[in-house]
Design a protein around this nucleic acid. Structure first.
Lengths: 255, 255
DNA sequence: GGCCGCGCTTGACCTGTATCAAGTTTACCC
DNA sequence: GGGTAAACTTGATACAGGTCAAGCGCGGCC
């Protein structure tokens, strides 16, 4: 009864990992997506030395809070994390979802305090990377410096994609785009790109995409009726990737 | 007849600068906002050595184009620049406006090619900072490395603010927020925070804020009727900053 | 100086999504 | 396992902002 659809492999579900909790970058199966990407094995060990791994976060627990002192960036090892900020009038704005192999917290570098909060959407293991040590190490490992610049740059371009989505696209297009994004991020992690379980609620999805829960729900129903998705609560099957891409890409393209 | 409202000072209008075109970071009046921020005078000279200054861009000229090879980031010295990307279906999305002392082009680091295009909104002088040299220099000047990380982080948080604005706020709130943003950026540059000339068209404003030209125009008219702004074509006077802030901050705040 | 075109404004109408409301299902907890 | 709260779905209605259309005015150019 526990996610039969997800082909769960080592480390994706810490509760099932009975063997060896002493994870390190060298043996982490996410190393090819994560910070070690550009490093040789000697350098990976140097990186590994500065990384701290605490006990897994439970669903709902905070990784950091908006306004708290910035000390580290974080890599998700398993589970899923959402980042959000609270607007002046007290409403929440979800700014991103982070899956295994992805790095969050870089918004805190600017003012030395976190510009948003981050909380676990489900039980999640996270690697903490103290930023001071990372900076020092970057000086001796130019490959690491470059890679970290790239990671920040990627965050910028992804935010800009979201800006475009919010500014130009309909509810249906936004949701199609999010489903495709999650699908391709699953593929990167060698999980199924067509069947997966959404770790976030409809509220979070709507919040992230600038829509109300009701609209999210209606769009899911519509996409199901069109036989593009099969939606069963949080379980998603993409039945027609092409159709989904057509919707996300905005079919208009008339001359 | 040329912008009487703007208190134009040295370098803000290159056409008027008859004296000394050999600008450098040490004598640039923007150095306190720009990259040299965290450097002592010796180090500023090292930075200065890698910076290239071409002739000013004319209105409409491109600084770089989406997809072109990424070699440098750019600091605006005078004028104004807009960054934009073209969506899959051919529409334009403005992702940012850049004023003197601000740095753009960091989106290109990730894939080594520019993720968006940048063009001058008016005659603009720009400093080109070759990224390779900047990386090398960062290794020897940790203050510079840190400052550049901060600049990228600031770009991220600003993008996230825009995401929030687009996702949660009404047309009026978005425009109020943009006016306040331009106002405070002017203040940083010791220009008037209450009277300024918009370098961009209504179309660009609408595009940036996810609104149509008509809506932008209507909101300006409404704010003028409320005696919060005085709008005369591109000339803006903020008559009631408090009122503008109330609108931007979303007055709702009912428990 | 007068003509043309583009950027801007204003009005009338339409539509997508929000809002409000009610009902259903799922998940959690004792 | 049953009770309750939270999450989700579905329907009816309202409204902000989009679309379409027309007119204005400033700036550039011959």
């Amino acid at each position: 009864m526990t996610n039969p659809a997800n082909e769960l492999i080592h480390c994706e579900t810490p509760r099932k990992c009975t063997h060896d909790f002493r994870v390190n970058c060298s043996n982490c199966r996410l190393s090819s997506l994560c910070l070690p990407l550009a490093l040789n094995s000697d350098d990976v060990e140097k990186l590994d030395d500065i990384i701290q791994r605490g006990k897994p976060l439970q669903k709902g627990e905070h990784l950091y809070q908006e306004g708290s002192a910035f000390n580290s960036v974080y890599a998700v090892r398993s589970g899923a994390v959402k980042a959000y900020r609270v607007t002046d009038d007290g409403r929440e704005q979800v700014t991103g979802f982070y899956f295994p192999g992805e790095i969050l917290g870089m918004d805190g570098i600017n003012k030395n305090s976190h510009a948003c909060s981050a909380r676990a959407l489900e039980t999640s293991a996270v690697c903490e990377i103290p930023f001071g040590s990372l900076e020092e190490l970057s000086v001796t490992l130019p490959g690491l410096q470059r890679h970290f610049f790239q990671l920040m740059s990627r965050e910028i371009t992804e935010d800009q994609q979201l800006i475009t989505l919010l500014s130009k696209n309909t509810a249906e297009e936004r949701i199609a785009a999010l489903m495709l994004s999650i699908s391709s991020r699953n593929a990167r992690r060698k999980l199924s790109s067509s069947n997966f379980r959404l770790p976030m609620s409809r509220i979070d999805i709507g919040n992230y995409l600038g829509l109300t829960v009701e609209t999210v729900s209606r769009v899911f129903s519509r996409l199901q009726k069109l036989e593009i998705l099969e939606v069963s609560n949080k379980e998603i099957s993409i039945l027609d990737v092409g159709g989904l891409q057509d919707i996300a890409n905005v079919i208009i393209e008339n001359e």
